[in-house]
C-alpha cells in the first residue's frame, strides 16, 4: 500500500508542481498573484479536447499525436496568458498594487463564465488518447497514464530549468525578477520579457490542464479552481518566486494530501485540513517558504 500511495502522491504532486510553476514565474517578476492561472489551466484542457475532437487523427499517431495535443494546448494557453497580461495587468502595472489583483480575479470569473455559457456547463468526456495499461510494481500498480504524467512534467521542468539558466532570454527573465527597473535600465525590454514569462507560465498551465483531463477522464468549466488553489499553496510552501521551490512544494503537498487521506482514520474528510495545518507550521518556521529567499524590500 505504501508504494501505491507514493505513486498516487507523486502523480498528484507532479500536476500541482506544473501549475505552481505558473504562479511562481509570474510572481517572481511582477509580485502579482495571477488568479486567472486556474482558468488558463482549464482552458488548456478544453483546447486539448478541441484538438482531439477536430483532429481525430491524433489518436492513431501514437506519441507524435500526444505531443501534438500537448504542443497545441500549451501554445494556446500560453498565448492566452500573454493576452491576459497585456489586457488586464499591463495597464495597471504602475497603479495601486491591489488593482492588478482585482483585475486577475475578474479575468478568472470572466473566463470561467465564458466557458460555462458558451461552451458547456456539463462534464465532458476527455478521450483516452493514452489507453491505461497497468504495470505491477510489487503489490502496487502503476498505469501508463501516471507514467505519462510523471514523464511529461519532469521533461517540462527540466526544459524550463534549461531555458531559464542557459538561454539569454532566461537570463533576462532572471534579471527582471531581481529588479525590473534595473533590468530595463540595462537595455532589457521588460515588457517583452514579462510577456514571455506569461507565455511560459501559461504553457505549463495548459500542459497541466491536459494532464488533468487525461488522468481524470472528464473536464468541466470549474476544474481549474481546486488544483489552482492547491498549486498556489504549493508555490507558497516552496517559497513563492522560487522555481525549485514550486516543484518541491507541489510534490510535498501532493504526498501530504495522499498520506492524510490514505493513512489517517476518516482522512479523506480531513486531508485538506491536515495539509494546510502543516503548511501553516512550515510558514511559521520559514515565513518565505522552504526554499524561499529573503525578498529584497520593494516598494
Amino acid at each position: 500500500m505504501f508504494i501505491q500511495q507514493l505513486i498516487n502522491g507523486l502523480t498528484l504532486g507532479a500536476i500541482y508542481s506544473l501549475i505552481a510553476l505558473g504562479y511562481t514565474l509570474v510572481y517572481g517578476i511582477l509580485r502579482l498573484i495571477n488568479f486567472a492561472h486556474s482558468e488558463v489551466l482549464m482552458l488548456g484542457a478544453f483546447i486539448g479536447l478541441g484538438v482531439l475532437t477536430f483532429f481525430p487523427a491524433a489518436f492513431q499517431a501514437g506519441p507524435l499525436g500526444l505531443t501534438t495535443v500537448f504542443v497545441l494546448s500549451m501554445l494556446g494557453s500560453g498565448v492566452l496568458n500573454m493576452f491576459i497580461e497585456k489586457c488586464a495587468y499591463r495597464p495597471l502595472r504602475h497603479t495601486l498594487s491591489l488593482a492588478p489583483l482585482i483585475s486577475a480575479i475578474g479575468i478568472s470569473i470572466i473566463l470561467q463564465n465564458a466557458v460555462f455559457l458558451w461552451i458547456t456547463n456539463q462534464s465532458q468526456t476527455f478521450p483516452e488518447i493514452v489507453v491505461p495499461t497497468n504495470f505491477s510494481i510489487g503489490p502496487a500498480t502503476l498505469n501508463s497514464l501516471q507514467l505519462v504524467i510523471l514523464f511529461t512534467s519532469l521533461v517540462l521542468m527540466v526544459l524550463l530549468h534549461l531555458f531559464i539558466q542557459k538561454t539569454k532570454t532566461g537570463k533576462a527573465m532572471r534579471a527582471c525578477a531581481d529588479d525590473l527597473e534595473a533590468a530595463a535600465l540595462m537595455g532589457i525590454d521588460s515588457n517583452q520579457i514579462i510577456g514571455i514569462t506569461f507565455l511560459v507560465g501559461g504553457a505549463l498551465g495548459g500542459a497541466a490542464g491536459v494532464l488533468n483531463g487525461m488522468y481524470y477522464g472528464s473536464i468541466k468549466y470549474n476544474l481549474g479552481f481546486l488544483p489552482g488553489v492547491k498549486a498556489f499553496t504549493a508555490a507558497v510552501l516552496g517559497g513563492i518566486g522560487n522555481i525549485q521551490g514550486a516543484v518541491l512544494g507541489g510534490f510535498i503537498l501532493g504526498i501530504l494530501e495522499v498520506a492524510a487521506a490514505g493513512y489517517l482514520p476518516n482522512g479523506s474528510e480531513w486531508k485538506d485540513v491536515v495539509a494546510f495545518v502543516i503548511l501553516i507550521f512550515v510558514l511559521l518556521i520559514r515565513p518565505t517558504g522552504i526554499l524561499g529567499e529573503k525578498i529584497a524590500e520593494k516598494v
Binding site: 500500500m1 501505491q4 500511495q5 498516487n8 502522491g9 502523480t11 498528484l12 488533468n212 481524470y216 470549474n222 476544474l223 479552481f225 481546486l226 494530501e257 495522499v258 498520506a259 492524510a260 487521506a261 490514505g262 493513512y263 476518516n266 482522512g267 479523506s268 474528510e269 486531508k271 485538506d272
Partner: peptide, 15 residues
C-alpha cells in the same frame, strides 16, 4: 466522506 468537486480519490481507494 469526500468533497464535491474533488477529483482525486486514489489515496482513499488505495486504503
Amino acid at each position: 466522506g469526500i468533497s464535491v468537486g474533488e477529483r482525486d480519490f486514489k489515496a482513499l481507494l488505495t486504503r
